[in-house]
Computed example of a mutant assay.
Amino acid sequence: MKTTTFGVDLAKRVFQVHWVDMDTGEINRRQLKREQLVTFFAKQAPALIAMEACGSAHYWARRFASFGHQVRLIAPSFVRPFVKRNKTDVADAQAIWEAAQRPEMRFVAVKSEAQQAVLTLHRVRAQLLKMRRMQINQTHGLLYEFGAAVHRGSHSMSDAARMLGELADALPAMVIDTLREQLQRIEALTRDIRAIEHRLAAWLRQDEGATRLAAIPGVGLLTATAAIATIGEASTFRSGREFAAFLGLVPRQSGTGGRVKLLGISKRGDVYLRTLLIHGARAVLSHPKHLSDALQRLLARRPFNVVVVALANKTARTIWALLAHARTYQSGYVAHAA
């Protein structure tokens, strides 16, 4: 007996399900409420359930897997070509069902609760950093209007507090009080950011894979934990190059008539992890005394930013190799052909 494939269009309250009866060939469409969706799939025989990798997809994937179903998550960009004419919930569910039938379709690994929790910390930290940067820039601008030039960066808040004290007699009290409250908000954001980093560090010490990744040059606390949480399962990618392509660290291609032209990096995939890898590579290259001969030769003939991306690509492949083959990092390791 063949396994039935269900295409589910996720939503907050109203879900759309599409499937085809394997015995009769009848096309079925059904709209279900949130509480009805769980009951519906709990009663079904083990089946293949396909969904878009969107909000709450990993939660529902774990929930359906607990019922004995096989779950496949598909990137929304891979589902879009199968949507016919108008975009509706019915059309989306059918498109998901059709995309799941393709033999070469790429699927997204289902994340565990722990991996989603780590990503939650990263997302909150990134937002707090953005808010702190906005507050600092505004404080610098407001002080500059009164002739106080503060150095750039988050470490200049002590200078800002000192200058604010010097201007206390020259400015209205309401301005001084408001700017002091602004400095207090910046300090509170800094404390919150450090608290999140302490939680990530505690999780890294408990996770064996993240600890192995942290040994790679250019991979620190943020990159190691974000990589573990983003990849999910290393077996999702067939090679390190596929993982690098997933992160957008490979050239875009444009070709016709048998001629292929390589362009800049594609910048597809996870922007956050790609940014961390590039920052890590830039930090490694900023210490030329500790660079390998290969990197020094590459720096001699290629622009600095090109070498940064190349090193980030190599770091991404190394991350995949360590996770896929359960290895530890070895400096100067050379892979041998089978």
Rank of each mutant, 00 (worst) to 15 (best):
T3C: 12
T4P: 01
T4H: 04
R13I: 10
M22L: 15
D23S: 10
E26M: 14
E26L: 11
I27H: 14
I27K: 14
N28G: 08
N28I: 13
Q31Y: 03
L32Y: 06
L32I: 03
K33G: 15
R34M: 05
E35N: 02
L37E: 02
K43D: 02
A45D: 07
P46K: 11
A47N: 08
A47L: 06
M51V: 10
C54G: 05
R63S: 04
F67Y: 12
Q70K: 15
Q70H: 09
V71F: 02
R72P: 00
P76A: 11
S77A: 13
P81R: 15
R85C: 10
N86E: 12
D89Y: 04
A91W: 03
A91R: 07
A91T: 05
D92G: 10
D92P: 00
A95M: 13
W97E: 03
Q101W: 07
S112Y: 02
A114E: 12
L119K: 04
R123L: 02
R125E: 03
A126Q: 10
Q127C: 09
K130Q: 03
K130G: 15
I136E: 00
L142I: 03
E145F: 02
H155G: 05
S156V: 00
S158C: 07
S158L: 11
A160F: 00
L164S: 03
L164T: 06
A168T: 12
D169N: 12
A170P: 02
P172G: 09
V175F: 08
T178W: 05
T178M: 06
T178R: 05
Q184R: 12
Q184G: 07
I186Y: 07
A188S: 05
D192A: 11
A195F: 01
L213Q: 13
L213C: 14
P217W: 14
L221N: 06
L221V: 01
A226V: 08
A226Y: 00
A226F: 02
T230I: 04
G232D: 03
E233H: 13
S235N: 01
S235R: 04
R241A: 12
A245Q: 06
A245V: 04
F246V: 00
G248W: 04
G248D: 02
V250E: 01
R252H: 01
R252I: 13
Q253F: 00
R259C: 15
L262W: 03
L263C: 15
D270S: 07
V271G: 05
T275L: 09
L277F: 14
H279E: 14
H279Q: 15
V284E: 09
L285G: 12
H290Q: 15
S292A: 11
D293T: 12
D293Y: 04
A294G: 01
L295C: 09
A300V: 07
A300N: 06
R301E: 06
F304C: 09
F304K: 06
V306E: 03
V307Q: 00
T315E: 05
R317V: 01
I319V: 11
Y329T: 13
S331N: 15
V334R: 10
V334N: 10
